[in-house]
Structures are given as C-alpha cells and as structure tokens.
Design a protein around this nucleic acid. Structure first.
Lengths: 225, 225
DNA sequence: GAGACATTTGGAACATGTTCCAATTTTTGA
DNA sequence: TCAAAAATTGGAACATGTTCCAAATGTCTC
C-alpha cells in the first residue's frame, strides 16, 4: 500500500476515467453539432454512462461545460516563454495568446461561452474554477508588476486592481462577442484597444508613449480597411 | 377617424394593454419572489392571459424580461441635467446615475441580468433593444465629445471606439456582479475605476491629472476601510 | 348587422435540466 | 473468500421554455 494510495485507488481511478469520458463526449458534441443538440442525455449516451452519472460527478450541465472549457484552455503555462523586448509588449503577447483560442475556433468557444452564461441555478461559480482563476490572475499580476519594475506602469496603482479591471474588460468584450455584437475578426483588436487604454491610464510617461502608439494602431485597424 | 388611427385602433390598443399587463406581471413577480419562480406560466397567470399570449406578443421569455428591463431603466433622459464643472466629472455623474439603479435595487436587477444572459436560443439580441442601445451610445458619445471640446480628452482617439470600450468594461463588471464575483457595495467604485483608467488612457495632460486623482480615490475606497 | 379577418385561448405535446428511487454492480477491507 | 461500503444504473417523475392546433372571441370593413 503506497503512501499516495488514497487518490489512486481503483474506485477513484474509475471515477476519473468516467469523468474524462464525459468531458470528451461533451467536447466532441460541441465540435460536431455546434451549439444545438448539446443535451445531458446525449452527452451521457456518447460517454457510455447513465444520465445520472454526470450529475454525480459534476453536479450540473454547467459544471460539465466548465470542465470542457478548462480542459481545452490553459495558456498560462506558456506565459513564461514570452520574450518581447519590454513588459508592456509581453502583456499584449500574452493577450494574443489568450485570444488565439477564440479566434481560431470561434464556433466552439462561442458555444462554450453561451453555455457558461446560463446561470439559472443558484450556484453560479463564475467563468472558471476558483483555483484556475487564481492561477490566471497571479500570472497576469506578475506581468503587470514586471511592467512596474521596468518603469512603464505607475507603482501607485495596485496591480491587483488593474488586473481586475483588465479582466472585467476582457469579459465584457467576450460577452459582446458571444452575443454576436462583436465579430470574430475584430475581437482581438477590440480587446487589445481596451487593454491599451486601461494600461495607459496606469502608465508612467515612458509607458504612455508606447501605449499611445498601440492605441493608434488598434484604432487604424478597427476604422480603416 | 383621426390621423393617427393606424396605431390606435381598438385591436392595437388591446394588444398594448395586454403587453403592459404582461410586463407588469413579470416585474412584480421578480420583485416579490426574487429570482425563483419566474416562469412563463406564472407570468401569464398573473397577467390574466393565456400561456401562448406572451409568446405571440414578445416571442420569448427573454424578450419579456428585456421589456421589463427597458421599462424600468431609462436614465439617458436625465443626462441633460448633469451640471458638474467639467466634462469628465459629468461623465462620472452619468455613471453614478446609471449605477444607482443597480445599487438601490440589487436583487431585482441581478435577476434581470441573469435572465438576460440566458441565450440558449439563436436570437441573442444583446442586452438592449437596438434603438435603445443606439440612444444610449449617442448620449455617452456626446459626453465624451464634450470632454474633447474642453481639451480634457485627446481628439486623436475616436469617441465611438472609446464609448465601445467603456461599455464593454461596464458590461464585464456587471457580469461579474451578476455572477456574485463582485459585491454590490463595491460595484460602483469598481466600474468607476475602470472608466477612469480607460478615460485616462485617452486623456490630454489636463484631463490626465483630473483622472489620476479619481483613480487614486477609487483605489483608496476599494483597498482601505 | 354580416361576413372576413386577426388574436387569444385552452390544451396537448415535445425536449430539456434536474432529482429521486430501488436494484445492481464494483471496490474495498478484514 | 465474504460482507460492507460506494458507486452506477435504469426508470420515472417534475417543472421548465417553447410550439402546435382547433375552437372561440373579438375587431374591422362593407
């Protein structure tokens, strides 16, 4: 009996097996039928389990979809590889990294988003698992603090609150996108513009110049051809 | 037969009567039972109409809720009465005006928001009627352009895009609030901070000073006691 | 007033998310 | 090996949003 037997017992292992089969079934169904026909009964049938099993393992349809979302999207691990010259550019590289998912597979992620917005129950756990959320926030805060260290962002403005603002802005744009008010083509530039504006509101003179250039570039891209 | 008889016929009048009875019933139900028990069958019973009538008149439950929302909330008409010294302060006064609804009646509006987020159908008409949306946007744009005229915001940055950014930010924060990630107590300051950051990203040096003060004030309010 | 028209009505129906239950299978611990 | 514990299973049930239908009710035009 090993020391880590507690979470590797046959029972837990089978549970994990079923769990991932359900997530995979949900993902494949969204990929294939895009939005329509994503019912718990179908997911269960596809995963080869009973209808009640997903409820035992996840609790609700929303939780299943959330698991699909988090299974697909873990870009934070790639943050360390960003190599842009200054911290502000690294922030926008990270932003590109995050957006790429949505832009390259819009139908899939739009469906996911819309499903996550359905919070008729009283749980409403937000758009990510608490742990995942905290990891993401910490990664973004690190980027912001690097920009402060490089003298591009004002130290007087809390990196925590700034991160919160950027995140709210991103979610607002994603919401507009999920509802069809923002096209996939302009999604990336739209959020980049918002990031640049908010960051410039917290920038030192040195950072402000860099960000102004980016703002104007985004603007050209959105208004010009 | 009067000149405006076309839309005042007995038939249309009765329709409008039923329409407003349904909206009123939905509003009262949300007010009384807060979130739970807002079903089409209940709305219909309360309004004294058949279950199919709301579908004839509005099309979906979401459309009924949207009608409740717009019936309650038309703050734009009060914009003209804002009398703050400079255009930037007027923007924040307008923001306060908009937020007051949510802060003074959080349960009601949270329920409304959550219902509007449910877009399982393929219509997904956004968070407001197109006409209403355009009116709101125009009002905000006017405020932003006034700030440009007063030399507080940079003319090089499009008021249209800036408005879009502010609106996305507000929606993102409202989303977090509707999902419980942001408390009602901090909702106003949270959105104000985001507005101040984004606006400062588009400000002239004169405007920048005003906004920096506001940013620090918001920050104190959010972090301090 | 009479017929043509438009709407509402009641009711049933469907697919959905979710919960409950007793019966069954699988895993665990001695 | 065997009994106890834990989980899945099948099935039914409930409330929901939504749609369909024939019958009834109202309104308009002549």
């Amino acid at each position: 009996m090993t020391e880590a037997a507690a979470d590797t017992g046959r029972r837990e292992q089978a549970k994990g097996e079923r769990r991932s089969r359900i997530v995979r079934a949900a993902r494949d169904l969204i990929r294939e039928t895009g939005d329509t026909d994503l019912s718990m009964r179908m997911i269960a049938k596809r995963a080869g389990v009973s209808l009640t099993t997903p409820y035992n393992l996840f609790g609700s349809k929303r939780a299943v979809v959330l698991a699909v979302f988090e299974d697909e999207r873990d870009f934070v691990v790639r943050f360390s590889r960003l190599r842009a010259a200054n911290a502000l550019d690294r922030i926008f590289d990270a932003h590109d990294l995050a957006m790429r998912y949505f832009i390259e597979d819009p139908d899939f992620y739009r469906t996911l988003w819309k499903a996550l917005l359905n919070t008729q129950g009283q749980d409403s756990t937000g758009l990510a698992t608490p742990e995942r959320l905290e990891r993401n926030r910490a990664a973004w805060r690190a980027l912001l603090e690097a920009a402060q260290d490089e003298g591009l962002l004002d130290r007087a403005i809390s990196s925590d609150l700034l991160e919160r603002s950027l995140s709210s802005f991103a979610n607002g744009t994603m919401l507009a996108w999920a509802m069809g008010a923002v096209s996939t083509a302009t999604l990336g530039t739209n959020t980049a513009l918002g990031y640049a504006l908010a960051l410039r509101g917290a920038a030192t003179p040195a950072g402000s110049a860099i960000l102004q250039a980016r703002i104007l570039r985004c603007q050209d891209h959105l208004t010009g051809s």
